[in-house]
């Protein structure tokens, strides 16, 4: 009588399975952290709101809070008008430079300075350096972040003239941007949680000037209408 040949089964020890599984999870988590971490710290400039509000719409009746105080939106910012620029208005290459050492922004059109003014970069979290592109422009947005425990919590509605930027190291989800700031007036000195704060009057001019040309309350950069290049350099002064 022929005996049925028993196929040999390879038994993997449970401990090896557990080890491999754990290793796999660690690799996945590490890859995720690598992709979304910025300078080894928190990956979202506005730690609570991030990039959740991309409507660009004005939110009436909302009360903003900054460092424990209510902040009112100036009446001059409650009805921001659409840009009067048109496509193809200028062919000169545009480039925004932010110098963290001097806390200034200079916008170039070709070799000409289009505008220059003081800014306020990251005090509570560093503003990233490098070359970036604007990927979206929002007439208004909501920003929330900071920490109640150390008094840095903020919940700011209708932040005007926001231009989010990104590069290969700083993804869109990290939520760093150039934007108007109506809750403080200490420009020329680091103030923010990583974004580049600009006086509303200056932010409006930059918003209208920068690409892509703003068509509505929310304008995405595209391959045909890319966002303006933003170069951020220098070291934030220790104040």
């Amino acid at each position: 009588m022929k005996q049925k040949k028993r196929t040999k089964r390879t038994h993997i020890p449970w401990i090896l399975v557990a080890f491999l599984l754990t290793g796999f999870i660690i690799v996945v988590v590490a890859l995720y952290m690598l992709l979304f971490r910025v300078d080894g710290t928190a990956y979202c400039a506005n730690s609570i709101s991030c990039v959740n509000d991309l409507t660009g719409s004005f939110q009436p009746g909302k009360t903003s809070t900054f460092m424990g105080e209510r902040v009112a939106l100036p009446s001059s910012l409650t009805n921001l008008q659409k840009s009067s620029r048109v496509l193809g208005e200028t062919t000169a290459v545009k480039h925004i430079y932010v110098d963290l050492s001097t806390q200034t922004l200079t916008a170039y059109e070709g070799s000409n300075v289009a505008m220059s003014f003081p800014i306020a970069s990251g005090r509570w979290h560093p503003t990233p350096t490098g070359d970036f592109h604007i990927w979206i422009k929002l007439r208004y947005t909501h920003m929330e972040g900071g920490d109640q425990a150390d008094g840095t919590y903020y919940n700011l509605y209708n932040v005007p003239y926001t231009m989010f930027f990104y590069n290969d190291q700083v993804p869109k989800s990290a939520g760093f941007s150039l934007h108007g700031a109506y809750w403080h007036n200490n420009f020329g000195h680091p103030m923010s949680h990583g974004c580049v704060n600009i006086r509303p009057e200056d932010a409006g001019k930059l918003f209208d000037w920068a690409d892509p040309v703003t068509a509505t309350t929310t304008t995405y950069a595209t391959a045909d209408h890319p966002g303006t290049l933003v170069t951020i350099t220098g070291e934030t002064p220790d104040e």
Binding site: E69, V71, W183, H184, F187, H189
Partner: peptide, 24 residues
């Protein structure tokens, strides 16, 4: 004094007693 950190808070910079940069 460099500016306003919020609508009612002025940002004040100091020198310490030994003339080094002090707290803000």
């Amino acid at each position: 004094v460099t500016g306003w950190d919020d609508p009612s808070l002025l940002h004040v910079m100091t020198y310490a007693a030994d003339k080094s940069i002090g707290f803000s």
